[in-house]
Computed example of a mutant assay.
Amino acid sequence: MNKLLVFIISFLFTCGLVFSQKLTHEVYFDTDKYEVPSTEKNRLLLFISTLTDVDIESISIYGFCDDRGADTYNLKLSQQRAEAIKSIFSNNEISESLITNVDGKGKVLLKIVDEKNILKIRGLNRKVEIIVKPKEPEPEPEPKKEVVEVNKKKTEAEQIRSKLKAGDKIIFENILFKTGYARITPESKKTLESIAEALVERDNIYFTIQGHVCCTKYSRDAVDRRTKKRNLSEARAKFVYDYFAKKGVDKRRMRYMGMRRKFPLGGDPKYDRRVEILITYVGDENQ
Rank of each mutant, 00 (worst) to 15 (best):
72 T>H: 06
225 R>F: 09
34 Y>R: 03
142 E>V: 11
32 D>M: 12
68 R>I: 12
179 T>A: 01
253 R>S: 04
153 K>N: 08
192 L>Q: 14
96 E>G: 07
105 K>A: 01
51 L>A: 07
283 G>E: 13
54 V>S: 13
138 E>T: 13
50 T>Q: 09
164 L>K: 08
238 K>H: 06
96 E>K: 12
142 E>N: 11
281 Y>F: 06
254 M>D: 01
276 E>F: 02
212 H>K: 08
187 E>L: 09
171 I>T: 10
249 V>H: 03
74 N>F: 05
43 R>T: 05
224 D>S: 09
61 I>G: 07
243 Y>I: 02
25 H>T: 06
209 I>Y: 01
180 G>V: 09
79 Q>A: 15
36 V>H: 07
95 S>I: 05
141 P>M: 10
260 R>K: 12
117 N>P: 00
286 N>T: 15
177 F>M: 10
143 P>S: 08
113 V>M: 04
162 S>M: 09
99 I>P: 02
164 L>Q: 12
153 K>F: 06
273 R>A: 13
63 G>D: 00
23 L>T: 03
75 L>H: 09
58 S>T: 15
254 M>F: 08
63 G>H: 05
83 E>V: 11
7 F>L: 13
16 G>H: 07
24 T>Y: 00
16 G>T: 15
93 E>Q: 15
180 G>K: 06
281 Y>R: 07
98 L>Q: 04
264 P>C: 13
286 N>R: 08
260 R>E: 05
243 Y>Q: 05
19 F>I: 04
177 F>E: 01
236 R>A: 01
160 I>E: 00
206 Y>N: 04
94 I>T: 15
143 P>L: 14
270 K>S: 05
119 L>C: 01
274 R>L: 06
23 L>G: 01
62 Y>L: 08
45 L>G: 00
287 Q>K: 15
188 S>D: 11
40 E>Y: 09
104 G>T: 04
281 Y>M: 03
193 E>A: 06
150 V>I: 14
204 N>V: 02
40 E>M: 13
198 A>N: 09
97 S>I: 06
139 P>T: 11
4 L>S: 14
206 Y>M: 10
10 S>C: 08
13 F>G: 03
55 D>W: 05
68 R>S: 07
207 F>T: 10
183 R>F: 15
138 E>M: 04
280 T>W: 00
21 Q>A: 14
262 K>W: 01
282 V>W: 02
36 V>I: 15
256 Y>H: 08
122 R>M: 03
168 D>H: 14
233 S>F: 12
71 D>C: 09
286 N>F: 11
39 T>E: 14
191 T>P: 00
212 H>Q: 05
136 E>V: 04
170 I>G: 02
178 K>V: 08
200 V>T: 06
120 K>Q: 15
47 F>M: 10
39 T>C: 03
232 L>Y: 03
167 G>M: 13
124 L>M: 11
